[in-house]
Amino acid sequence: MRLLSAAALAFTVTLPMTTHADEALDELLEARHGFYQMLAMNMGTLAGMAKGETPYDEATASRAAANIEALTHYDLPSLFVEGTASGQIKDSAAKPEIWTNMDDFKTKFGGLVEAAAGASEAVKGGQDKVGPVVGKLGGACKACHDVYREKS
């Protein structure tokens, strides 16, 4: 009986706590996905122009590139908190290797920061200016996805 009440107590004490911690991680994951969603929307704008699927518009291109530049000034790796790897939390595509190679993961993100630097100016002046920028940014996406993104 004592055991039972102890268990009940432990349950009632820990239950809200774990739920709280889970919620925090869920919010973190949501923020992360939001970050990539914004990155994707702006990348999509540039990629569409680079491929000629959408007509080139200097202001639109420059704004999309500026958004990407701005996004890369956010400290993305800080959103990769322990407990948010794939398998640990629903919908995460982050490979556990990120946490065992955090320095390299940060270097990979640094690659994106570098690729994005000056992009808002680089895409000005014509449709042919967009391709090389998308190539550089896409290369940075790929370098990280190849190693740290779950394919599912």
Partner: peptide
């Protein structure tokens, strides 16, 4: 579709986004 905006299979747009992504894993 490895989601890098520079490489995408020519038929990727004919399948669902989760299939496009899984296909990268199958390809590997």
């Amino acid at each position: 579709d490895p989601d890098d905006y520079i490489n995408v299979g020519p038929l990727a747009s004919y399948v669902s986004s989760s299939t496009r992504s899984k296909a990268v894993g199958w390809h590997e």
